[in-house]
Design a protein around this nucleic acid. Structure first.
Ligand SMILES: [Mn+2]
Ligand SMILES: [Mn+2]
Ligand SMILES: [Mn+2]
Ligand SMILES: [Mn+2]
Lengths: 227, 227
DNA sequence: AATTAAATTTAGACAAAACTAAAAATTTGT
DNA sequence: ACAAATTTTTAGTTTTGTCTAAATTTAATT
């Protein structure tokens, strides 16, 4: 009924909706509310309703009036393909063009809509098939598989444990710039030395040096514990 | 009155019109006919009229009712910026991702619309500031300057002259594939050995080997004469 | 259970970019 | 110079994606 061709004739807007629904968790028959999508996309609920009907018509989402939408299998596949492109482009920008991790998202938002399977596969190859993007998020493989890394928020790990910084939760440019300024980067080794009960701030050791970070920071940094 | 910001909020469609007008020669106050633009863009003349008015409104073209359009200074600058992006992306695809010169145009048509000055400047740098694209066409510099190479059609040069193949006139995928099949590539040294008066076909020497090519081929290959 | 509040959909409008068909202007041919 | 042919514009529609305001459905509170 619906063919692979659909993937090629999707509009930019349709792709953005699919991606947003995926990010809001609508990939496992969990219904995502119209309002949630509207807020995330900075659009109006009525626009979301219109698009929901169109995407349902195309077989990309399940849509139950007044209940919300979730992605069909084809919808999930489509979402993963767009996210794959987004994240591969982000890696490309950082590794090959010296972009900072705070600059890449905006450009990747455009590049993710380029239609050429060969292009993205060659970029993948050029980058030597990276598994994670500059923010530590996993890159889906060509056939839609990806491994979410075993990671925890820095704010959640116990005192005296050691880990490696592997990702950020907040990917805003301001947060990333703050991390740059304080020499906090993915790959750094972190050990929690002390937790301040009063404000949940942490005293940590990072690659030798000691520093103090607020809960706000710690709760937006992912670490992988040493095994 | 009109600011650089305009360049950023141009739609894909507007950019394609500007580019087409430039390629049809509308950069030096030569008026380009509505029909010519429509034919080139495979659209209808009435659509061109609508866009002409809009582009004139934005200060990108001069538009005289019933006479045609030509690019303003800002229009020319815009066109050169898009062409620069198109050709740099083509070089990137060939040099970094092993695309053949027949595959790049279609993808570059998409990539040329990506909005990021930093991106294209970094691509330029990565490629070591190439002067020509894979088809031998000159790449405008950041400030809009470019040198059209001193070149002639192979069909136009006299017997016994030697030259280097520097470009193609027909850039269709079928023609480029034909050239690949016959090992005709940019950079090859060519010497015209004989001209057949009857059908204008040529007997040539290319990098040692001798071969015979039709007028159809010779009149779509550019060569630069040895000085 | 009835009322109120919140979320969602409908109805109607708009802008961008395209189209068709008809009208108007320009060019060509005699 | 005038009629015919061609080109271009106008007028009116269509599609896509958005919006506002009003109506409807669902959820929350008394
Ligand atoms: Mn991103
Ligand atoms: Mn990312
Ligand atoms: Mn091209
Ligand atoms: Mn080219």
């Amino acid at each position: 009924m619906y063919f692979w061709k659909n993937l090629f004739l999707m509009t930019r807007s349709e792709e953005n909706y699919i991606k947003t629904i995926f990010h809001l968790g609508g990939s496992d028959s969990t219904l995502i509310a119209t309002n949630a999508i509207a807020e995330q996309m900075e659009t109006k609920p009525s626009s979301v309703t219109d698009m929901a009907r169109k995407l349902a018509e195309k077989g990309l989402v399940h849509y139950k009036k007044y209940q919300g939408v979730s992605l069909t299998d084809i919808g999930v596949k489509t979402a993963l393909s767009i996210i794959r492109k987004h994240r591969l482009w982000e890696v490309f920008l950082v590794k090959k063009l010296d972009f900072s991790w705070g600059e890449v998202h905006e450009v990747a938002e455009q590049l993710e809509h380029i239609k050429s399977e060969k292009l993205i596969d060659k970029i993948d190859e050029l980058l030597d098939f990276p598994k994670y993007d500059p923010h530590g998020d996993p890159i889906p493989s060509k056939d839609g598989k990806f491994m979410e890394r075993d990671k925890q928020l820095l704010s959640d790990i116990p005192i005296n444990t050691k880990g490696v910084c592997v990702g950020v939760k907040d990917t805003s440019s301001t947060f990333l710039k703050f991390l740059d300024k304080n020499n906090i980067a993915l790959g750094n080794t972190i050990k929690v030395l002390e937790k301040e009960e009063f404000d949940q701030s942490l005293h940590i050791q990072m690659d030798g040096k000691e520093l103090h970070i607020s809960h706000q920071i710690a709760s937006n940094l992912y670490v992988k514990l040493n095994d």
